[in-house]
Structure formats: structure tokens, C-alpha cells
Amino acid sequence: MKKIIISFLICLTVGIYISGKIVSNNVTKNFKLLNEKVQSSFKDGDIIFQTSESEQCEAVRIATNSKFSHCGIIFIENGQTYVYEAVQPVKMTLLSEWIRHGRENRYVVKRLKNADKVLTKSVLEKMKTYGKTMNNKNYDLYFEWSDEKIYCSELVWKIYKEGAKIELCKTKKLKDFNLKHPLVQEIMKQRYGTKVPYDEEVIAPSQLYDSELVETIFDNY
């Protein structure tokens, strides 16, 4: 009798394990298919946001009162979906790789509200052509408004401005942001020393996110 009970328990345990593994595999497969379906709906010109893991990114998030510290613009080339982003240097990054760089793989995608009418094929070509003039440029650690170097939200804003003749939002001055937090103060000291360019024109990821011209099409935060 004891052997029968033990055998039953072993079979039950194995059965639960196999069932659990099947369920887990199905969940993973379904999630992957859903993820692929969502990402296949993204279009040229969509703007994508995430939070990256670094002191500077955390300082940006704090200074701009936002959960986001990084953004890029989606471009589709030869059937592949990329994020054109200003890192070091400015480059095209596969969407799947870009997502992995963010905190917990979380991100938000926004789209111009009237994109289907405004972002025509010719306009998108102009945006991409202008964007390519920034390719391989160094990342701008000092957040200057020149084109010599470029930072993430500046890249997206200028691609829309120069390629589509659309200002997604108004620029701000550096002094308009929350600069009192200790981490922000430390990063600013590292970057500028005692000569902080408070009147420098700036575009932050949060400004693009809050633009009245765009709407959310995906959000897994």
C-alpha cells in the first residue's frame, strides 16, 4: 500500500510539473506572438520612450519630472523595425535590442495624431534624409542646441521640425527644469563646473511625451 501511495505521489508531481511547463511555454509563446503583433503595428515616425539605467538618465528623469529619460524615432528599413537614437554615436538600433536596454523592457510609443494624412511617403523620406545628416555624430553630454553634437530628444524634435515642418512642442531653457535635486546638481557640476548654461535652449523627452500633437498607441509601463 505504501509503495502504491508513493508511486501515486510521484506520478502526480511529475504530472503537475509537465502541466506547469506546458502552461508556462504556452504563456511565453502567446506573449511573444502578442509582442510581435504589437511591434508590427508600429510605423515610420512613431516616437518611443524608455527609462535607461544610468546616473545621467536618472538625473534627466528627475530634472524633467518624468518617468522617461530616453527616446528615439522609429524607422522601418528593409522590413526591419529600428529606433534611430542619439547615443554614442547617433545610430539605428534594432527595436528588439533597444527595448532590452530599457528598465524592465518597458516602453511607450506615441504617434502624431494625424500621421496618416501628414506623414506621407515623401514627408517621411525627407525626415529620414535629414536624420541621416546626424548619423554617427557624437552624443551631446552638454545638451547644446547646435547640430555639432546631438542628444536623444533633440534628434527627434529636429527630424520632425526639419523633415516634416512640425514643431512637436516649444523649447525650454535649462533653467526651467528642476535643477535642485542633489543628483542633478552633481551631474551638472561634472558637466559644466561653475559655468552652467541656464539659458541654453533644451528639449526633454518629457516635452515630446506631453505634446498635444501626439497620442499613445502602446504603453506597457
Rank of each mutant, 00 (worst) to 15 (best):
L174P: 02
Y82V: 00
L119R: 11
K195R: 08
T93M: 10
D176C: 06
R103W: 10
H70V: 01
K110N: 03
E186F: 14
D140K: 08
V118S: 04
G193W: 12
Y151A: 02
D44F: 13
M188H: 10
L9S: 07
I16F: 15
N25S: 13
M134L: 15
I22K: 12
D44C: 10
P197T: 02
T133Q: 14
I166Y: 09
G163I: 07
T13I: 13
Y198T: 00
L155K: 10
H70R: 09
I74P: 03
E200D: 06
K3S: 04
P182V: 07
C152T: 04
G72F: 14
S54A: 07
T28W: 07
Y198F: 15
L168A: 04
N78K: 15
P197S: 05
H70E: 01
L208F: 15
Q88E: 14
S69T: 01
C11N: 08
K161E: 09
S19G: 15
I166C: 04
V38D: 05
L112N: 06
F75I: 05
I6L: 12
L168C: 06
V118W: 11
E201R: 13
I47D: 02
F218L: 01
Q56S: 06
N25H: 12
I217T: 04
N25R: 13
N178P: 00
K37D: 02
L12F: 14
I166M: 07
I4R: 15
T51G: 04
E36T: 14
K180P: 00
L119E: 05
E200L: 06
N114G: 04
F49M: 08
K121I: 08
K195Q: 10
S19T: 08
Y160D: 00
E58R: 15
E154F: 11
Y142W: 06
P89E: 04
T216W: 09
K172S: 14
W157P: 00
S206K: 15
K137A: 03
